[in-house]
């Protein structure tokens, strides 16, 4: 145990480790905020779709970088991911708002086109399989100071929008039709959610990778939901859980040679399982028994005589 603490304090002295921990903390805090709105809208897999599209953006960044001879050669990867993720998110939002069933197929084409296109373009741009794996499954151990600044800045935007406009975004995600009847600019707010989701995907890419970003947005919310009844508390708790699983998962990989992104998601899923198992034990006595049947007065109605 003392050995562990000793090696941990040594680790914490390393700037590389410090940067990765700060990145994990910030992303763990920000990702569940936007995840809360996506779960509320029943769009849990939106982040996954944006992540697929963002890979094409990363590869495009590499391609443009190789043409323009920028150094390092991945300097344009994150800007490319931001642009592609935003475009993808806005397209997904437009398809969702139209609510056509044919949109489902359109989204499938977009998602798989995004992954396949990304892999192919990456090859053209001279990226290696190792580079590709870094984007798909995270590369938190190589966070530079520039990366960290970008991560913190984008997370700050996500937090500012997600927390600052909470009631308005709640209204839009809770009951979109009602929100439109109130005069709220629902379309603009929906696009804002999509853009902020795209930013979240891009910042999370570094920590858990594009294939797992959705997990970081959704799983903490799913855990928080198990034990809360209010929206506000669910969001706050999800942020706390996000930080805990990111920092814990990352710390584990300091001692064992495991992929940090995947470890973080595994820790989150395990936490979900533990809370789901423990919840009935904790909550059972105080829980109100809810009648699942709706009160339908006129289903069968006993009527009097002499009515007109």
């Amino acid at each position: 145990m003392i050995d562990t603490w000793h090696s941990l304090s040594l680790l914490l002295g390393s700037p590389l480790i410090q940067r990765s921990l700060v990145a994990a903390f910030v992303v763990g805090l920000a990702a569940p905020v936007i995840g809360t709105y996506l779960v509320q809208r029943r769009l849990s897999l939106l982040g996954d779709g944006i992540g697929h599209v963002a890979l094409t953006g990363v590869a495009m960044g590499w391609l443009v970088g190789s043409w323009t001879q920028v150094t390092p050669n991945d300097a344009l990867a994150v800007p490319g991911a931001v642009v592609a993720a935003i475009i993808g998110a806005v397209i997904i939002e437009a398809v969702r708002a139209r609510g056509r069933t044919s949109g489902d197929v359109a989204l499938a084409l977009l998602f798989y086109g995004g992954i396949a296109g990304g892999v192919v373009i990456m090859g053209v741009a001279g990226g290696t399989n190792a580079n590709l794996m870094g984007y798909l499954f995270g590369s938190i151990s190589t966070v530079t100071t520039t990366d960290l600044v970008a991560t913190v800045a984008m997370s700050a935007v996500v937090l500012a929008v997600g927390l600052g406009l909470r009631t308005a975004l709640f209204a839009v995600c809770q009951d979109e039709e009602f929100a439109r009847s109130t005069g709220l600019p629902v379309r603009a707010l929906s696009v804002l959610i999509a853009i902020v989701a795209a930013l979240t995907v891009t910042v999370s890419m570094r920590v858990v990778g594009l294939l797992l970003v959705s997990a970081l947005m959704i799983v903490p919310v799913a855990i928080a939901q198990l034990v809360t009844t209010s929206f506000r508390r669910t969001m706050t708790l999800a942020m706390v859980i996000g930080v805990i699983v990111c920092v814990t998962g990352l710390t584990i990989t300091f001692f064992h040679r495991l992929a940090p992104g995947a470890m973080i998601v595994v820790v989150a899923i395990c936490l979900y399982a533990v809370v789901a198992v423990l919840r009935p034990l904790v909550h059972a006595p105080g829980r109100r028994i809810v009648d699942p049947h709706p009160d339908l007065e006129d289903d069968v109605r006993i009527v009097p005589s002499g009515s007109d």
Binding site: T36, V39, Q40, R41, R42, S44, T167, A168, F170, A171, C173, Q174, D175, F178, A179, T182, G183, L184, P185, V221, Q225, T228, T229, S230, F231, R232, T234
Partner: peptide, 20 residues
């Protein structure tokens, strides 16, 4: 009135106070 997230009655009613 429920959505994909937990919400209290008060939170839902508060959302009715917004406008343009």
């Amino acid at each position: 009135a429920t959505s994909g997230m937990p919400a209290t009655a008060l939170e839902v009613v508060l959302s009715g106070m917004l406008h343009r």
